[in-house]
Nucleic acid binder design. Structure first.
Lengths: 211, 211, 211, 211
DNA sequence: GATGAATGAGGGTTCATTCAT
DNA sequence: AATGAATGAACCCTCATTCAT
């Protein structure tokens, strides 16, 4: 993952400034590629317009870097932290959910950006980007499904399909809780309640899918 | 639903042309409001720029109409067709899935557009549009959960949560099958296989959630 | 004056409708040629866009007609009513002032339109229009200065210059009273006071310029 | 007067270029706000469209700046040069006329622009602009009428009205000499003759209004 | 004659990108 | 490396003019 990022021109920029650029760009691109405006990025990052283009060449070049960087973040700070030894798939997916929530806290724009980028990709197909997404997605699935103890499932149930039901159910719950009018405070206040409710879903899934 | 659409200026446009405009606009706006370009719309619809603005005034006015129209389509050609008598929730959601697939066939851009519109709405909150979405969403949920025979579920399982698991699982499956590189032909070729696979998920859900 | 107007296509339009078109156009063109919009004219006149262009061909053609027509109005309802026998120039100009006020009442947009047209003419010189203005202006001066009894002026004063002082003073007063925030009601309420004040200026002029 | 102009973004533009923009804009806006076209301005000023909008944001912003700047010019290069000690009102107005002629020479579009702006203002009332005009106008009157030696007038003549007659007469003369077909050369050739003629009017006014 | 839907050139505005300093 | 003034293509929108009915 992420080959080429370490050798990118931007790496010669001092770290603090680079961080500011990446965060500003990720936040702005979460509006979608077209709606994002380079002026906002340089304003928020506190650098000049010329410098941005000195490092990234084009808006596209910047987008490409930010996208790869985001995928790499997901890999380094999420996928690589998954406990591969856990063979109880429901337990594992529950832990993955917690890791994802943690990462969302640390990088609020990360998943918004990636979600938008994924949709943008449908409109403007781009092999390279598609490959990045697919790679990240397949690694996630691979890790999630690695060493699943299929004997936990009731007899006669396809283990992969059952795992999908678990994944989609938790995703569905998360998506249903995101609201435009929710502030960061709201989120923190509701956090405990959400975890409680997720646990109830987990409990149903465990009761029904497991022996 | 949709009050006011019938009296819109556009209704005096001949039907064939109007259809072309609506389809072209829906397809273009699926890129997102900002990324959509009125030139592309008129080119695809085969009308002049002036005419588009004669009927809709502004890009915003066009967007507004297309959005309301899409919600109305969803209502007339999907929600209103749901069999309210069906008390077996899994069966009902299965039938809803089929209706949705049918509508996707007839209006390929419809759900893509609505999904993007929903995301755009998060960034540019607009009370009127939010109301439309909420109305459509709540009607859908209400219809889906009307007259559910909760006695079918295993004892000790919350019926609403169980219904959600069914809905999210089918949504998750659908989403996983949408690919940017999939043409309409691909879709038709795979259709039968998809239905088969969905049936298997339905079967698992029935086996595990029902008595 | 006005040759060609009687034979204009528009004369075959029924009088009532024609009046509405002329009034609407004069009012709209008082905004200036460029700022005037044919849509407003047809809306106010209650005719269709096509009909306007059927009769006048182009916006320019309409403007040209309206301008000539306005000059003719000035001739027929102002200049031709001047009492040529009056040899007391101050008295005559006073009466001309009253005639002008009357005409302003009957056609509120007339002088506004002409003033704007005169300014527009400076920007876009047009021989034909310039000729119309000049003709109207010279006729007005000629009539004003016809049969002036120069013996009324103090000795050693150039009669033409003295007459100009009278004219410019009264024009200056009128111009100083026109305000953007003055409604027709305001105007009528102030009318008497204005006439009184004008009389005082007249009195000064008479006292100083006349023997 | 003119507070805020010195801190305008445009002030960071190099002077030569700025002058070109201001002159080009003043000339173009003399056509009236709507009729003026930003393309003509940038063409004449020799800058790009983008730059104009970089500095002024909108056509309106440009107009606003040009208007304030014109008022300030009138103040700095005309009103502030008036000799307040002069108590002979006719002499003072004569000198003011000369100052105005000088300024017209230096900025040929200035008074045309202001005259048009004043008319535009009647149609599109704008408090801020109205205030600028009123301020400039009232300063002009105040300066003109400051320290008038009313004892010079014949007894029984209202001093203010007499002063107005002087002002309107000279304005009337100026206005009568402006012709659309007059080039700058014509103007310079006629200049001496005009001054001679104005002197004759001054002489009449002095002879008749003064003791 | 009369209508108003339809056209497209033209104008204001935005913004990615370049380049002299 | 760093800046930000400068550019111009592309976008939304207006409106005089045409034309089928």
């Amino acid at each position: 993952m992420g080959e080429g990022l370490e050798s990118h021109k931007i790496m010669s920029m001092e770290e603090d400034k680079r961080e500011r650029v990446i965060n500003a760009a990720m936040k702005e691109f979460a509006k979608g590629y077209k709606a994002a405006c380079t002026d906002s990025i340089v304003r928020e990052a506190g650098i000049s317009k010329g410098l941005l283009f000195h490092y990234f060449g084009t808006k596209d070049g910047l987008y490409s870097f930010i996208l790869k960087n985001a995928c790499e973040m997901v890999y380094n700070e999420y996928l690589s932290l998954i406990n591969l030894e856990q063979s109880d798939i429901i337990e594992k997916i529950w832990q993955m959910t917690l890791l994802k929530v943690d990462l969302s806290y640390k990088h609020p724009a990360l998943f918004d950006f990636l979600a938008k980028a994924y949709i943008d990709l449908q409109e403007n197909p781009n092999e390279e980007f598609a490959a990045y997404f697919e790679k990240t997605r397949s690694v996630a699935i691979e890790k999630a499904l690695a060493d699943v103890d299929t004997s936990l499932f009731k007899d006669g149930i396809d283990a992969k399909k059952a795992a999908n039901i678990v994944i989609w159910t938790l995703n569905g719950y998360s998506a249903s809780k995101i609201r435009s009018d929710m502030t960061m405070e709201d989120y923190q206040n509701e956090y405990e309640r959400y975890l409680e409710e997720i646990k109830e879903y987990i409990s149903i899934l465990r009761k029904t899918l497991y022996k």
